[in-house]
Design a protein around this nucleic acid. Structure first.
Length: 720
DNA sequence: GATTTAGACATTTTT
DNA sequence: TGTCTAAATC
């Protein structure tokens, strides 16, 4: 058998991992070391050398994008489709299991997926029905609590309040929420995983079937698994030693949402007969960038340990820019990007990475001003748009009239004279008789106690949905959607709204028809669901691409979290300041501080050729002027790898933020932005000056001591 | 039922 | 300081 296409493109470490005998295997894959490649080639190896059938392979990822990429690359390598293989996200695969075993999982056959927004609204409704003030019990916090518990595999009945009234109330809300989900046949994201786990845990026969089927289980980004995902994998592979996982403990940046680094750190202790392979050769970045990354991450005490290296050259040093303030920082970055572009590079080869999404605004303004196209990652995605959700609500009602979330959304959208009072009456009836909003409406109308106007509107709504269901029953999906849209009158409603977005919204609705057509072309035949339910699940599980034309050549703006897995020739890591990065919310806890450092490591290793890091001496945050010190992460990178870029005095002038002011105040003797040294406080930058003669004072931002006002006559400052 | 205004609040996000 | 939500008003 010729295995050369599988092994030849690999380096030695990769080859060892790919060709390892079947057994529990951990591949510790550093940034840019060919992680996906190993996974893909390993599967190809199993299918050829180990003679595994596609049927016997399960490969799990976290995002739909990663799943799609993996499938595509395997098929490309093998030159044939891999039909029977299960490749998907944890949630997608759990969903598939639950569809196949809905009865055993205790779900109605027509169960619906509740996405985050539906879940949020559902929680708000529960709070209202429990008569709880949502100022005191913020729905976001409740959502966080419930999902957190589910991610740990805990149901409300497992929880103990320990006498704490806060916990007690949260558990009560959790209980009510779960009951409401069950009444409506709703399953939220975390519930998918939890149910799938319980299914296998409680039904030995079903578990055995899958254990017998999946002889090979592979996991991508293993450091991001949470407790329930891990438990699910352990059940499936129990006693089989067939778990092959790839990940990097140094890139674990989702601890805050339940990911457990311990899963990868303790892999060898937890799994029998396990081996570890380290991939340390990096194919992405220059030597200087890797050395910086290695030095930085070396400050984290608890690691599995690994050193990235490259066979290529050292490259340029890392550029460090100390901006006067955040405006100057943006100005500097955009200026460098402009140069980069005029040197003949494309805009999409450059990226601006920041810790918090609020930081994007100032860069966007500067880019707009320079007329440079850009794209911000992580906005609203297609199926999250209000108009799309409105239209989907009608489709959901066709599928299942008891879908309360859909009912609430559609009942007065477009407005048809069903106000909050009317809806409240329906809600009250639904609660009292423990029925869905749809049934409650029908009952109220039959009772005849409704005011005439409201009754007419409600009847009209019920009739509309009912007629649509009958009329479109035989149509295929795109036609169905087209007819539903027309009957809902949503397009007209958006069209006549004149907030400038009306046309866009109407076009998005047309795009929805396209999406259903596209969906029809893709293979979803193996599922035993009708086309509409299948599409609804798809919409919930895969929210689609974010806005923005991905084909246009744009400067890329994103948070460090969303940059994981990407690479760019030119990277700007901005706002590298204490309080912002590491973020003040993480500063007190050593574990979270380590995660911040890993985040910085992720950021640094995104850069292929050139990396700029910048911090500002002064930054406006929440309307307040701050004088942050440079981040400790900057000090953790050896200065021999860095090149400081000093701005000339002409650029220290804040461009638009402050009224023009003299640079050099002769009476003070120092200029703004100038670097000075103080015998006790060390080096710093002059931020501000006031007064004259003996009372003249300057504000200096010291690297170690922070910002201080000093009287020039006594301070013994000297330029440096 | 749309538009205006006041108030809260401000890590990171995929499914 | 800017954004988002909810109440208040036309």
């Amino acid at each position: 058998m010729d295995v050369s296409p599988i092994l030849d493109p690999l380096n030695e470490a990769q080859r060892d991992a790919v060709s390892a005998s079947v057994g529990n295997t951990l591949v510790l894959a550093g940034a840019g070391s060919g992680k996906t490649r190993v996974l893909v080639h390993r599967i190809a190896w199993l299918l050829t050398v180990e003679e595994a059938t596609p049927w016997s392979v399960l490969a799990v990822t976290f995002t739909n994008k990663a799943a799609k990429e993996m499938r595509g690359r395997i098929e490309e390598l093998l030159g044939q489709p891999i039909g029977g293989m299960w490749v998907g996200t944890f949630h997608g695969l759990a969903h598939r299991l639950l569809r196949a075993h809905w009865k055993e999982a205790g779900l109605p056959q027509s169960f619906q997926i509740l996405d985050s927004d539906d879940q949020f609204r559902m929680i708000k409704r529960i709070l209202k029905s429990l008569d709880l003030d949502d100022a005191k019990w913020p729905p976001r916090q409740v959502q966080w609590f419930i999902n957190g518990k589910k991610d740990e595999g805990l149901r409300a009945q497992h929880l103990d309040d320990g006498g704490d009234p806060y916990q007690h109330q949260m558990i009560r809300i959790y209980t009510e929420y779960q009951a409401a989900c069950e009444r409506g046949g709703m399953v939220d994201f975390a519930e998918l995983l939890l149910r799938a786990h319980e299914l296998w845990r409680d039904r030995a026969d079903i578990l055995q079937h899958y254990q017998a089927r999946f002889r090979h289980v592979l996991v991508d980004e293993f450091q991001d698994t949470n407790a329930i995902q891990y438990a699910w994998l352990r059940l499936l592979t129990r006693g089989q030693d067939n778990l092959f996982v790839v990940g990097d403990d140094d890139q674990s940046i989702y601890g805050w949402r339940g990911a457990q680094v311990e899963n990868i750190r303790n892999f060898e202790q937890n799994c029998s007969n396990s081996r570890m392979f380290k991939l340390e050769q990096n194919y992405r970045s220059t030597g200087n960038i890797l050395n910086a990354a290695n030095a930085l991450i070396g400050n984290n005490p608890s690691r599995l340990g690994k050193q990235l290296w490259t066979a290529d050259g050292e490259g340029d040093p890392i550029n460090l820019y100390s901006a006067f303030n955040e405006v100057d920082e943006a100005r500097f970055v955009i200026e460098r990007i402009r140069q980069f572009i005029s040197d003949g590079n494309s805009r999409s080869e450059s990226a601006i990475l920041y810790r918090t999404s609020a930081q994007s605004r100032i860069f966007e303004e500067a880019l707009v001003q320079s007329a440079i196209p850009y794209r911000v990652y992580g906005g609203l995605r297609f199926f999250e748009r209000a108009e799309i959700r409105d239209a989907m609500a009608y489709l959901r009602l066709l599928n299942n009239p008891d879908d309360d979330a859909a009912f609430e959304r559609a009942v007065n959208m477009p407005p048809r004279g069903i106000g909050p009072k009317t809806v409240d009456a329906v809600r009250a009836h639904a609660r009292d008789f423990n029925v869905s909003l749809w049934v409650a409406t029908a009952e109220l109308l039959k009772g005849g106690a409704m005011p005439r106007r409201a009754a007419n509107s409600l009847q009209g709504f019920l009739d509309l949905v009912e007629e649509l269901r009958i009329d479109t029953a035989a149509l295929d999906l795109p036609e169905k959607v087209e007819q539903v849209l027309a009957a809902s009158r949503l397009p007209e409603h958006f069209e006549k709204s004149r907030d400038g977005k009306g046309q866009d919204r109407k076009e998005n609705l047309e795009e929805l028809v396209n999406a259903t057509r596209q969906f029809g072309y893709e293979a979803h035949a193996d599922e035993e669901m009708d086309e509409l339910s299948s599409f609804l699940s798809h919409a919930a599980l895969e929210a689609g691409e974010a806005q923005g034309d991905p084909f246009e050549d744009c400067v890329q703006l994103m948070t460090l979290h969303s940059a994981k897995g990407l690479e760019f020739p030119l990277v700007f890591l901005v706002g590298v300041e204490e309080g912002l990065f590491p973020h003040s919310m993480s500063a007190d806890d050593p574990e979270r501080l380590e995660e911040e450092r890993r985040l910085c490591y992720v950021g640094v290793t995104r850069a292929m050729q050139t990396l700029y890091m910048s911090h500002a001496e002064s930054r406006r945050l929440h309307g307040q002027e701050n004088y942050p010190r440079p981040s400790r992460f900057l000090r953790e990178i050896p200065s021999s790898l860095m090149r400081e870029i000093r701005s000339g005095p002409q650029v220290t002038q804040p461009l638009y933020s402050k009224p023009a002011r003299a640079y050099t105040d002769e009476s003070v003797g120092f200029s703004l932005g100038q670097r000075v040294i103080h015998p006790k406080f060390g080096e710093g930058v002059v931020l501000n000056a006031e007064g004259q003669g003996r009372s003249a004072r300057v504000q200096v931002n010291f690297e170690t001591e922070g910002s201080k006002w000093l009287v020039v006559a006594y301070a013994n400052l000297s330029p440096c």
